[in-house]
Amino acid sequence: MSTQEQNEKLELLQGTLDLLILRTLIFGPQHGQGIARAIQQTSEQELLVEHGALYPALQRLEERGWISAKWGTSSNNRKARFYSLTAGGRKQLVRETTKWNRLSQAIARILGNEPAEG
């Protein structure tokens, strides 16, 4: 049962988190902790990313071939796994961004036309 709940959450989070990760990697290779930091900073701390949820997402993106990973050394000389966008990842980012924009516009239109009824 608990697996089902996790899956349900994951389903809800999945699309958004994937998009954010791909978007972050557009500026170059980054390790997991760096990605988490970047998402928090660029969203001005509005989005709270549970770091633990990030890694399965990274793993999934890697399996789909949208990002690739390599162990390397961080700026302060620690071993870390660095992720970078693949060509497929770039395409996926464009697709997802377009979809996301249309979705948010659509939602915005609905919310604009039909004010909350309470």
């Binding site: 902790q33 890694y55 961080s74 302060n76 620690r78 870390a80 796994r81």
Partner: peptide
């Protein structure tokens, strides 16, 4: 066919994340 990642490798990555985060904090 990518070689399947071992779970030790995944564990090591989490360790690295925690160490980086602790240092940053």
């Amino acid at each position: 066919f990518r070689r399947k990642r071992k779970s030790e490798d995944f564990g090591a990555e989490i360790e690295a994340h925690l160490a980086l985060e602790i240092e940053r904090l």
